[in-house]
């Protein structure tokens, strides 16, 4: 089978063949793309399960749980959590070598930031109006959920472009409440 090159956050990994199936082994080479770095290579065996993967390396067996998330630009990114350990990584991207890895800074004009409901609940009060300038950490809405009142604060300064939430409204997780630009 042909070789396959994959990039994780820009770091190139060169596989002796495309990894396929629940279990398998493959030769991996990496580190060659970095200036001054010595390329490393080793044999990896793997087993994927319902929530992640185990890999056997020359120094032992490591397990990782994973989760795919979609960012505001609609691109997938991964969260990786080490099993039997404390290491956790977010914002990991995987791409085929040659594919352009669009970076957050290249996305041109700044899009409106969506303020979303983190859990189901009821809007108790809306504290801002459309067109109002807000500063970071300024309270925007008061939401009641799990019998607690929670202030939703601005994560960045800007102008309120649109208010979608209304007082007394019941909202589901992920519902868009406000747009800040």
């Amino acid at each position: 089978m042909s070789r396959m090159k994959l990039k994780v956050n820009g770091q190139e990994l060169d596989f002796s063949s495309p990894p396929m199936g629940e279990k398998g082994s493959v030769q991996v080479q990496w580190g060659a793309s970095q200036a001054g770095a010595v390329a490393r290579s080793c044999e990896i065996s793997w087993r994927v399960d319902e929530s992640g993967i185990w890999i056997e390396t020359p120094t032992g067996v490591k397990g990782f749980d994973w989760r795919r998330e979609i960012d505001d630009d609609n691109r997938p990114q991964y969260v990786l959590i080490e099993r039997n350990g404390a290491r956790e990584f977010s914002l990991a991207r995987v791409s085929r070598a040659g594919e352009s890895e669009a970076s957050a800074t290249s996305s041109g004009k700044k899009k409106a930031l969506k303020v979303k409901a983190q859990m189901p609940g009821k809007i108790v009060r809306v504290l801002v109006e459309e067109g109002q300038e807000v500063t970071k950490d300024q309270p925007l809405l008061v939401m009641e959920a799990m019998k607690m009142e929670n202030e939703i604060r601005a994560v960045q300064s800007g102008r309120v472009q649109k208010v979608k939430a209304t007082q007394g409204q019941a909202v589901e997780t992920g519902a868009e409440l406000l747009l800040i630009e």
Binding site: M4, L6, V8, N9, G10, Q11, L13, F15, P18, P19, M20, G21, E22, V26, V28, W30, G31, R40, I44, W46, V48, G52, I53, I55, T57, K62, F64, W66, Y78, L80, E82, R87, F89, A92, V94
Partner: peptide
């Protein structure tokens, strides 16, 4: 990829995503 041990996580993620 700069931290010690990151390479395992990178390889694991690449294989998992591919499979």
């Amino acid at each position: 990829g700069q931290e010690k041990g990151d390479w395992e996580a990178q390889i694991a993620l690449a294989i998992l995503q591919q499979v």
